[in-house]
Design a protein around this nucleic acid. Structure first.
Lengths: 94, 94
DNA sequence: ACTTATATTAGCAGTATTGCTAATTAGCGA
DNA sequence: TCGCTAATTAGCAATACTGCTAATATAAGT
């Protein structure tokens, strides 16, 4: 999932999708790359569950999956915790 | 920076470092990979400013750079938050 | 059925990443 | 200085990623 976000174009796709669902074509227009290249990025993001695809006539609508992004952010937060093991629970005696 | 966190071993290094500074040797011990391999991962993390290195006699102490992790987490949050996340809520009227 | 619009898959080169062993640097103590 | 420990750098093969063009699906209209 971090790997899926490792590419700038894919982060930019996520950024574009946060303002609402978009079709593959709309997304491809936003980039200099060829359409199949964007299509591949989309499939990587879909593989990582960061986006979902839904057919709408001849188009395919993509939308961001907020919960997985939340997971990623939480994972990063987890990496920041200073001097504490892997416990979410504060079960310190007092 | 996302790229630096894209590799599992590098995320694990960050996880190990969150409980305090460690030497290259201590980190290398925690993995199956050869020492130079870990050393390279460390240099990637250092390049991304995710860790800092400090010489301590013959050893080198590595520690996590919390502020950059915060930045990353904030960036992810940024990918989630907009006043517009319309899956199908069109009630932005009032 | 045929054509058009939308999008993905296949195949291919160029590049980057990974992980290894061998060689090298840096500090410390005798 | 020499030897020893700690760690990085160099060089190499294998693998993965990226982005292109060409070929292939899929849905809708005529």
């Amino acid at each position: 999932m971090f790997k899926a976000l490792a590419h700038p174009a894919r982060r930019q796709i996520m950024a574009l999708l946060k303002s609402g669902p978009k079709t593959s074509g709309e997304l491809a227009e936003a980039f200099d790359s060829a359409w199949p290249t964007i299509s591949r990025h989309l499939s990587v993001l879909k593989e990582a569950d960061l986006i979902t695809a839904e057919r709408d006539g001849t188009s395919i609508l993509y939308r961001a999956n907020a919960s997985v992004l939340e997971e990623a952010a939480a994972a990063l937060m987890g990496l920041m915790n200073t001097d504490n093991g892997d416990d979410d629970l504060k079960e310190a005696a007092e």
